[in-house]
Design a protein around this nucleic acid. Sequence first.
DNA 1: GTCTATAATGAGATAGAC
DNA 2: GTCTATCTCATTATAGAC
Lengths: 216, 216
Amino acid sequence: MNAPDTGPTTRDRILNAAERLFAQRGYYGVTIRQITREAGVDVALASYYFGPKADLFRAVLERRAEELHGAILASIDAVEKRAGDRPPGVESLIRAFAQPSIDRLVRGGEGWRDYIHMMAGLYSSQQSEFLVAMNDMYTPAMRRVMELIRLSIPTASERSVTLSFYMLLTAVISIYSETVGLERLSNGTIHPTDFDAILDHLAPFFAAGFHRMASV
Amino acid sequence: MNAPDTGPTTRDRILNAAERLFAQRGYYGVTIRQITREAGVDVALASYYFGPKADLFRAVLERRAEELHGAILASIDAVEKRAGDRPPGVESLIRAFAQPSIDRLVRGGEGWRDYIHMMAGLYSSQQSEFLVAMNDMYTPAMRRVMELIRLSIPTASERSVTLSFYMLLTAVISIYSETVGLERLSNGTIHPTDFDAILDHLAPFFAAGFHRMASV
DNA sequence: GTCTATAATGAGATAGAC
DNA sequence: GTCTATCTCATTATAGAC
């Protein structure tokens, strides 16, 4: 669409800047003027392309959702295939669910990092309008994981698996946010960016929990 | 100090209003004018009592920290006493850690509810300055729990227990925030305010994880 | 598609009267 | 300890020139 040296379009420049700033300071912590300043474009262009601020926020949220959600579903499918006729193990399902986000966080460039930080910040906010919108974008993948865990642990009730999955979800999302919490808790010996090490701990840790609640 | 019918002092009226609004909309989502309007006092009084907005936020954060932190420590002590000479079990330590906050969330009145929601919102924000301040207020209790878990599972490394405790912490804090996440995940069958039921699931769930990672 | 200019509003903070 | 008045600055949003 563009000549090779023009870089991103104005629309994308605004989305990129908004993504970065919303990730750092949340919805209310950012003004449209800061966004357009950061993007190097005129203030009026934000309204021109996106309308009000809330719509710009939603546009940022939606831009990468389809790709990431698709990657998570594909990752779950791959684990299913590898398991053959039997249901895949819980630990591998946890890994399949978390890995695509971590891949993009680590190797997807700044844009993906900002996007995932932004989602993590949103998840525990009281901004329930945006929160529900985001939740809905990833619901099919979450339901699929819960379904497969139930096949893997048939004695566990739906309620038990839902509660356990929620615990998993909150932990995974906190890890995506790379906050200083873990670093301070460990006196600086564990870095929030050691995602591989953290996932190697998290996966068996939570798998054990799911199995423990198998009879509930 | 006050006559019995004057109600809270102006200072406390401002703190109460700030607590409520910060809990709902976060630091940036609230203006001093909104706070003083909600408190029914003049705008200028916020500056008079607390100085800049950041200092007011810190004052809200600090007001209840000592009491809650003390209650958590007392709760841990009680579990230790009950266990006698042997180290207390992991599940009872998890309960001791989470229960004082839940008690205040459920039975402490609006003020405590707002305070705990505000802390939960802060924990996963990128507001690292306030975040670190809050973390520090509760560090002794967290260290104590980790210490006792290590006594209970002597084969677990410090690193393993720290990672596991971090997972626990993120889940517990998410639950305090009472967001719509769990409700949506369960299609409305599990309510975020069913704290007793959630804790009955969470405690054995996480205890199993700690034990699973005993040899790491 | 981009920018200038401006309208309308609200923000934080404080000096000074009471 | 409280309030009025005001300063200074930034905000969203839009109308209209280019």
